[in-house]
């Protein structure tokens, strides 16, 4: 029996990645990373993977190190 609904895990926009050309995909990926920077302050102490679940929130040196890093330019 075919059931009328399909379980939906992700949005249509997510699933549309497979329909992008290679160039569109790479451009969208880079754009997404840049747009996602707006949440940096919210997740500054978080870890996405690994065995450490959080850095040390509230420690003043964390802010100083982040500011220092932002002001340095990478070698390119």
């Amino acid at each position: 029996m075919t059931l009328p609904f399909k379980d939906q895990f992700l949005s249509e926009e997510d699933l549309d990645l497979k329909n992008l050309s290679e160039d569109e995909f790479l451009s969208w990926w880079d754009l997404w990373l840049h747009q996602a920077q707006s949440s940096n302050d919210d997740d500054s102490f978080e870890y996405s993977h690994g065995v450490f679940t959080a850095s040390l929130p509230g420690h003043p040196i964390n802010s100083a190190v982040s500011a220092f890093n932002r002001n340095r330019s990478a070698i390119t």
Binding site: L10, L17, D43, S48, G50
Partner: peptide, 11 residues
């Protein structure tokens, strides 16, 4: 794998 854009970090 063209599943989703969901992470800002690299692993």
């Amino acid at each position: 794998h063209r599943i989703a854009m969901m992470s800002k970090d690299g692993d």
